[in-house]
Design a protein around this nucleic acid. Structure first.
Lengths: 230, 230
DNA sequence: CGAACCTTTGACACAAATCAAGTCACGTGG
DNA sequence: CCACGTGACTTGATTTGTGTCAAAGGTTCG
């Protein structure tokens, strides 16, 4: 395996306070791997033997019910740590991570976790990340409990747009492949309902979509649909 | 204020590894306060200036929408730390805490947090607590997204029973006052629907309820209603 | 004794799930 | 390169679980 370049980590918050030599050490301990779209990085309930950093791509964090349904808890963007079960003193992963697009991640054995927490800024950033995720999940829960389906779907699309959107001709495109089924798994509804909503929005020119791709053409309109109170 | 007794803390996980003298120091820095039912201990978004330990009673952790609706995210039982925003590097509380029953809590200024994390076992227990709560919220989210109302309500009642239930004549009683409205705020439904469900269950002898009190008379039946897969 | 609040129950409406077809896009292999 | 198969998407018809509206009864407490 070729040596990984130090610039991969030097600008990321968990490592930004470290010396070049420390980053070198960290990289030399890392395993880099590519994951095809749809591949699981790790699964809920399995022994948490490694922790990860997403370099490129996007992940879905999902939980499944005994009934076989699955729901998408959140998405993870490049630069984020994930699978850091040890930060919460867990020895199994609390959810499953799936590559939503082709992705590249570094990973380290969990036995190095304690050592990593001694690097200045690393622990702090890990806990900040967890704090943000907890907040995000709470927000999703609140939406789920109080908002009608159309608003939930609008919120979900906006959230993905904000986390992964890139400007393109005539709108902001969600940065990873996403199906109607995926959106229904985020919002607790059915692919049929999501399809109807997106069709209606497309008719109104708020979004444009092709297979597995969504472009938000009028973000502001979508914000209105999401029902933010004035 | 009378001196607090060391036995208050010595058996609680966050402090169980400490010397008598350390517990003494911790108690001498603590403020003890009683909260009437319905009182807020702290509110979402406010500056997180203190952290807490619930000695007695029960709390509801709630989030409110701009629309004024509120949902109950989880309950906190005696012996648990709460308001530990600093553990996630936050400087505001992420949710509001309300006394569900008359409660007593100790609190310390957040400036002591760093010092507390040096006590053996304290940080570990704090993160375990957060991990459990994250798991619980994820479970609630999953239920909310996939289960019909009846199952959600059954799950919510069972969860409260498990966390706070006490054996009484002919059943297990939820350990704090709880209204239909409260349950609907936990499950994202209406007090009417909850009332209908509880009435039906009462007719079937699964629960018995008086004003603000619920006794689960046939826990096993309720588990079946909650739809655990076989 | 009255006010405040919790609870129950019925009637009705409607949003969204379910049921059901069918079209369209894409990748693969012959 | 075309045919085929699979997965994604759309759209209509029908059903139903829950929310909404409405009214009244019960309990607690000052």
């Amino acid at each position: 395996m070729p040596k990984l370049d130090e610039s991969l980590l030097s600008d990321l918050p968990p490592f930004s306070q470290l010396e070049r030599s420390q980053i070198r050490t960290i990289l030399d301990q890392a395993v880099s791997r590519r994951y095809d779209e749809g591949t699981a990085i790790f699964r809920e309930g399995h022994e948490a033997d490694r922790f990860y950093l997403l370099l490129d791509g996007y992940l879905r964090v999902i939980r499944s019910t005994e009934g076989g349904e699955e729901i998408i808890v959140l998405h993870i963007s490049p630069g984020q740590l994930f699978g850091i079960a040890k930060a919460l003193e867990r020895d199994t992963y609390p959810a499953t991570s799936i590559a939503a697009a082709e992705s590249i991640a570094l990973s380290w054995p969990m036995s190095l976790w304690t050592e990593f927490t001694t690097y200045p800024g690393f622990a702090t950033e890990s806990y900040k990340t967890l704090g943000r995720r907890l907040g995000e999940i709470q927000t999703t829960l609140t939406e789920m409990a109080t908002q009608a389906v159309e608003k939930r779907v609008a919120c979900a699309v906006l959230r993905m747009m904000n986390q992964s959107g890139r400007r393109t001709e005539g709108g902001v495109e969600i940065g990873f492949p996403i199906t109607r089924q995926n959106i229904s798994d985020m919002t607790g509804t059915t692919l049929h309902t999501v399809s109807r909503l997106l069709s209606a929005w497309e008719k109104d020119g708020v979004v444009a979509s092709r297979r597995k791709r969504i472009v938000v053409t009028k973000p502001h309109e979508l914000v209105l649909l999401s029902g933010v109170q004035g």
